[in-house]
Design a protein around this nucleic acid. Structure first.
Length: 599
RNA sequence: GGCCCCGUAGUUCAACGGAUAGAAUAGAAGUUUCCUAAACUUUAGAUACAGGUUCGAUUCCUGUCGGGGCUACCA
């Protein structure tokens, strides 16, 4: 039981004994004392005023006195307005540090049981017609991090990807390659596979625009109609039909081009440091989706229009009817998602299926759940759309048509270059071997990027300014990494033998304010992970680690670890430094960010 | 038009309905015979607007204004 729970239980007991009435736990607010006030935890007493029939101050004093009697760890208290600030005995903090300072897994909970149902987390979900961009970066980092956080909170997690490798958009780049490619391959052009395929998608769109413009002028029709009737579009649609018919000449090109893309994606994923336990392909799930839809039609949960298209009637949900199969029998995104959900359910029997997908698809997931319910699929309740905000550029949303997309590979390159330049400017390259330098620049550059993105509440839109966002000072990963490097330096200097023989301090009363502040942060780490898991928010972890580092730097500035003459205090500070470094490392690893021992 | 989300220092981000709204950055002023100054210290600066609920509202409710998203036989 944590000390917070102990205090809360004690408060409940005290109130009950005094008034004979019980109070719901949710009404009790116990928080970390703000740093302008003295104390470790603060209890808000306003909720008890009516029950105790005393003034807020009297309530606080009453509870403070009672807590000292009932909870051995409570040392003293002070009252400011309706706030009861509780201080624990210094020995509580000392015991805590002594017990935990060598715990490599501090903060991480072990799975409750081996056979618990997993949480399936889907993220990334790329299309195979375009390279990964900044939006995918946010998605990938969020997905990876949230999966890690859930694991650290004791869940069993399966990371999955769903590749959108079929559909009309894929046919577009295939068609452009067949018409204009002249046999270009990644090998003979020296272009990364995903980039090469992306180039043909762009070419398709520009050719199509030319045709549309011409038709609008010559035939006087509007843009929508022209797009539908343009020869290139007709050809793309016919290609999709032939693909669904599994025509060998089409499938062959499709396989080849997708192979190029995967090779490119794999490089980008690897560099980003993310991976998956299982990869689903739309081309392998849409048929199951189609079968489920046809089955639903047979059972009259769905209906067929005169043209042969199949629809779900959602009018009782206040939603428009949703198309599930086109008149020509081909599938749409929703069809595929129905199949994928079923497959995932069959594969893992998950307690929850989380989809990390942008908030622009809120409507889609809303409809997906409704359709699954309509089809009588019980797992519609397990689906959770983890809806995150968009990444915007200073002049608005990224638009591939306007060429304002920030490419993932390019961005990572820039970050690492900036890391190198900054490190060299600071003159910190001296005693680091060449090979280590490259790894260090990667660690710092990618760390800065990942932290910048993950420190923002996932639900909110965020702004990325290429000119200004690459910052290495302040609330950034390099600041945190630097703090870790400083601590590592201390521990290195102290030496392994000394670290092995650290003696627990006997007199806890010498713990100073900065040390105590640091201990409070560290103590909170496990609860923070649970909180982050509950909220699906890596941002909580990011901002916490930053606060922790600030607290350490203040301690570091005011007090010396190794030059402290009192050996007991010096040992105590070594333990404190050790555990701080561990929390920094463990916290950052939940964000997919590594921390160096030197920088 | 309808539905959903968001408006906090110049800028980018924080704040389970709780204390004097926190940071960072940009600005001003300082700190290095001492374990890494990518650090530390001081300073100035913000809840779009109007009501309501509450002991207490940035947070909940209503309206206004501003920004974004969705409303596809795209994904």
């Amino acid at each position: 039981m944590t000390i917070e729970q102990k205090i809360i239980n004690a408060v409940l007991d005290i109130l009950n004994a005094e008034t004979g009435q019980s109070m719901p736990v949710e009404r009790i607010s116990l928080q970390k004392t703000r740093k302008d006030f003295t104390g470790d935890f603060t209890l808000v007493v306003f909720p008890f005023v009516k029950l105790l029939r005393r003034s807020p101050e009297e309530c606080a004093v009453f509870l403070g006195e009672a807590l000292i009697k009932n909870v051995p760890e409570v040392d003293k208290y002070n009252v400011i307005k309706g706030f009861l600030n509780i201080s624990l005995k210094p020995s509580f903090w000392l015991d805590f540090l002594t017990k935990k300072h060598e715990d490599k897994d501090y903060g991480y909970q072990k799975p409750i049981s081996d056979d618990q149902q997993p949480v399936v987390v889907e993220y990334s979900s790329p299309n195979t017609n375009k390279p990964l961009h900044l939006g995918h970066i946010r998605n990938n980092l969020l997905g990876w991090s949230i999966a890690s956080i859930l694991e650290a909170s004791g869940q069993k997690v399966v990371r999955v990807n769903l590749v959108n490798d079929r559909g009309i958009h894929i046919c577009k780049s295939m068609l452009a390659w067949m018409k204009f490619g002249n046999g270009a391959t990644p090998a003979n052009t020296g272009t990364k596979g995903d980039k090469l395929v992306g180039d043909y998608y762009v070419q398709f769109e520009s050719e199509l625009r030319r045709q549309v413009k011409k038709m609008m002028q010559e035939k006087g029709i509007d843009e929508d109609e022209a797009r539908g009737k343009a020869p290139l579009m007709i050809e793309a649609q016919s290609l999709l039909r032939r693909w669904e018919e599994r025509k060998p000449e089409v499938v062959e090109v499709w396989k080849m081009m997708n192979g190029w893309v995967y090779e490119g994606f794999d490089k980008t994923y690897k560099r980003m440091g993310i991976s998956f336990d299982k990869v689903y392909y739309e081309s392998e799930t849409y048929l199951l989706g189609r079968d489920i839809v046809l089955e639903g039609l047979k059972r009259e949960r769905l209906y067929k229009k005169a043209d042969g298209s199949v629809w779900a009637n959602l009018s009782d949900q206040n939603l428009d009817d949703k198309l599930l199969l086109r008149a020509d029998g081909t599938s749409v995104y929703m069809t595929q998602d129905i199949g994928t959900a079923q497959l995932r359910y069959d594969d893992f029997d998950p307690q929850q299926m989380i989809y990390v997908v942008g908030n622009e698809q809120n409507h889609h997931f809303n409809v997906l759940k409704k359709v699954l319910k309509l089809l009588g699929k019980p797992y519609n309740k397990q689906i959770h759309h983890l809806s995150y905000g968009m990444v915007e550029l200073p002049d608005g949303r990224m638009k591939s048509r306007e060429g304002t997309v920030v490419d993932a590979d390019d961005l990572m390159n820039e970050m690492e270059e900036t890391a190198q330049i900054t490190t060299e400017e600071l003159g910190k390259t001296g005693n680091i071997p060449e090979g280590d330098k490259i790894r260090l620049y990667e660690m710092i550059g990618l760390g800065a990027l990942k932290y910048f993105i993950l420190k923002v509440d996932p639900r909110k839109n965020m702004l990325f300014n290429p000119e200004e966002s690459i910052d290495f000072n302040g609330n950034t990963a390099p600041f945190i990494q630097y703090t870790h490097a400083r601590i590592s330096s201390i521990l290195r200097t102290a030496g392994k033998t000394r670290l092995k023989h650290l003696k627990p301090m006997e007199d806890a009363s010498v713990i100073n304010d900065k040390e105590r502040e640091l201990l409070k942060y560290i103590y909170y780490f496990p609860a923070l992970i649970s909180e982050a898991a509950k909220e699906y928010s890596p941002a909580l972890i990011a901002n916490y680690v930053y606060e922790l580092c600030k607290a350490f730097n203040q301690f570091y500035h005011d007090h010396s670890v190794l030059n402290e003459p009192d050996r007991a205090i010096s040992d105590f500070r070594l333990m404190l430094s050790q555990l701080t470094a561990q929390v920094i490392c463990n916290g950052m690893s939940l964000l997919g960010i590594r921390v160096p021992d030197k920088m």
